[in-house]
Write a protein that binds this DNA or RNA. Sequence first.
DNA 1: TTTTGTTTTCAAAAAAAAATGAAAATTGCG
DNA 2: CGCAATTTTCATTTTTTTTTGAAAACAAAA
Lengths: 166, 166
Amino acid sequence: MDIQEGKQKFIESWGKMASDWGINRTMAQVHALLLLAHEPLTADEVMEGLSISRGNTNMNLRALIDWGLVHKQLKSGERKEYFYAEKDMWTVVRQIIIHRKKKELEPMLKVLDDVAGVEAKCPESESFCNVVKDLRMLSQKANQTLDTLIRADSTWFSNIFFRMVR
Amino acid sequence: MDIQEGKQKFIESWGKMASDWGINRTMAQVHALLLLAHEPLTADEVMEGLSISRGNTNMNLRALIDWGLVHKQLKSGERKEYFYAEKDMWTVVRQIIIHRKKKELEPMLKVLDDVAGVEAKCPESESFCNVVKDLRMLSQKANQTLDTLIRADSTWFSNIFFRMVR
DNA sequence: TTTTGTTTTCAAAAAAAAATGAAAATTGCG
DNA sequence: CGCAATTTTCATTTTTTTTTGAAAACAAAA
C-alpha cells in the first residue's frame, strides 16, 4: 500500500465510522481530507479532492467550523478562503464531546428531570420508577465525567485512561 | 404530568436520542416500551402500543434480541412469544458498548493498523503519519478502556466514575 | 459604480433508510 | 397429516436525509 492508497482508505474509513455515529459521512470525509493535508486547502480543492458539489462542500465546511474541528485562514492579498483541520487529536476529541453532549446528553437529562416529578408519586412496583431512577443516575454520572474530561488536558486524559486499564 | 404522559415522553426521548446515535429510532422506542412494561409483551402489544406494522415490530424485536437488550419468554401452554427488556441499566450499557465496539471501533483500528505500514515509511513532515499515530494511540486506549469496562461489574463502574470526577 | 471572483443559499433531485403489509414459512396441536 | 395461530420475509412504498447546482448575495479591486 502506498501513501495515496493509505490516505484514501483513511478518508473512507473515517467517513464510515462517522456515519455509524450519526454524523454526516461527507462532513467526516472533508475533515479527514483536511487532517491529511500539508497546508490549508481552498473550498475548490476540497470539492475536487472528494468529487462533491460546491454547495455540499460549503455546508460541511461550515458545520466543521461550527464544531471547532476546522479553522479558516485568510492569506493576505488573496480573496479565497483557506481551511485547515485542528490536528491536535485530543482537542478534536474534546470538541466532539462538547458538541454531542450539548446536543444529546443534555436534552435526555432534561427529560429525565421532567419525569422525575412523576417518579416521586410512583408506587414501588412501577418499573417506570426504577428505569428512570437508574438511567438518571447513569446519565448524571456520564455528564459529570464528560465535564471533567472536557476540562482536562491531554496529559490528564492519558492518566485517566491509564488508571482505568491498569 | 401523569404517568402515562411521562412514559410517552420517555419513549419519544429515548427514540430521539437513539437516532442521534445512529440507532434506528423505532428500535429504541420498542426497547423503551418494554423497559416500562410491568410484564412481558407480545409482538401484537408492541405493535399496538407504538402503532407500527407487524413487520417493523418483528425486525426491531429481533435486532434488540441480537443486541442482548431484550429477551424472549415462552409461556407453557401458549404459542405466542413474549418479550421483556433487560432492566439492569448497567447490563444495558455494557451490551451497547460491546455491540458498538465490535461494529465501529474495531474496524477503525483495523484500518489504522493497515495504514501503519505506510506510516513507517513516512518522512517526518507528513501530517498523515502524525494523524495516524495519534489516532491509533487514542483508539487503542479507548479500546482497552472499553474492554475493562465490559469486564467490570456495576460497582466497579460507579467507582471508576467516582474516581474520574472526584 | 461596475466588474469579477468568491461564498452562501435553497428549491428541487437523488439517494438512503425505514416502514408497510401481504404472502410464505414455521410451529404446535388434534 | 391438515389446520390454525403465529412469526418471518421481502418487494414495494413512504419518509428522511443528503446532494446538487444555479441563482443570489457578497466583497474586494478597478
